Amino acid sequence: MNMLMQPTNTTESTNLPYLCTGEFNLSIMQKVSEIITNPNYQPFKRKTKKNAQTVIQYYVSNSPHTDHAFYYLQSINPISTLLLEHSTFKISQSVMAVQKAYANLGYNSDGPINPILLHNEQYIKGIKPAVDVFVYELKSHWTSKIAQADRNKRISLINEIKKANARMMKKLFKTYLRFNLNHFTYVFNVKECTFLKDKIALEKALTQQITSMINKFHENHRSEILALFFCVQRDLSDNYVLNVYCATERECPPLSMKDCITLRNDSYLIIAPNSNITLKIQEIDYKMDIQDVYGKNEKTWKSIFGQMVAKYNYVYYESEFVSPKFIYKEY
């Protein structure tokens, strides 16, 4: 069966397995928040210079952090009201605060802040009052109860996910020392799916189909698979993204889930007549080695996995059928 294996056009070039442009936009806003809400951060630093018998005070950019923050802000796009009010996309309070404060900055200044001019003292003199207000808004929001509660919830969620994975990987490294870790990324685009108008019904049918695929894959390779875990998330480009990891012994050839997927016309996933859900596939085989000689060791894997779930700091999707947590098949 020929599979549709298009490049993921909505994906930015990053080290992460998959990050759509909408999420990349939020990640930039999160970075801005992290820079500015650092307790020690101030956008400008005061300098003095002597002119004859007069001491003149002026300000310069507190680079590189100020430069970085405003370079990032140049490339962000406003978040739509529809997304901000979406009940199942959990956008961080930090990101929403950046959006609001940046909009206010636009009203309070003559135009966008030009990072190229941040080392011009006359330019800084003109923008400093508006930038100080922008920084004050973000720092004030960061210490609010609603922002603290949101951060704590996200930190707790990420730690829970990382600890569950660390326990399983520790057992694998201890038992096998060296093994394969197959990683499948399946992107289901539902934008053209007009048959199921009810988005909840569509999500239910799709997640049921995904569960069926994984169960079939698990059954077909039960004797080869040492561990299997997966997660489904919805992204900001009308896609549902399935990440599947399965461990096998080093001698085992790389596995694939392609044979467990039934497509119509080699293009569309079948969950209902005329469902029109397209599928994009990426399958990678990691080599794992406890000594970090012939593959990635436990410490390196923790870093890779931590990067993948770090985006939950600014956005994740959670509904009746989809969870940010990974599901582990029991053995």
Rank of each mutant, 00 (worst) to 15 (best):
F195N: 09
D110R: 07
D67R: 10
K191L: 13
I127S: 02
P78I: 14
A97V: 08
E203P: 01
Y186K: 09
P78K: 13
K191P: 00
A247M: 05
A130E: 04
Q53Y: 15
M257D: 01
Y314G: 02
E192W: 14
Y245K: 01
D235Y: 03
L269F: 08
Y123N: 02
M308L: 15
V244P: 01
V131G: 01
F230M: 04
H119E: 13
K258Y: 04
Y294M: 06
D289S: 08
N114G: 07
E251K: 12
Y328D: 02
T14H: 08
N243I: 03
Y316P: 00
R250Y: 15
Y107E: 14
E121A: 11
N180Y: 07
V315S: 02
K191A: 14
I127F: 02
A310P: 02
T207P: 01
H221S: 04
D110I: 10
T211C: 03
T54L: 14
L255H: 03
R46D: 13
L242M: 08
K49I: 12
F230G: 01
Y59A: 10
E298W: 07
K100S: 12
S80A: 10
M213S: 00
K50Y: 09
L157S: 00
C231K: 10
E160Q: 14
I124G: 06
V133G: 00
D110H: 07
S13V: 04
R151A: 14
Y316D: 00
N2R: 10
I200V: 15
L269G: 00
K329H: 14
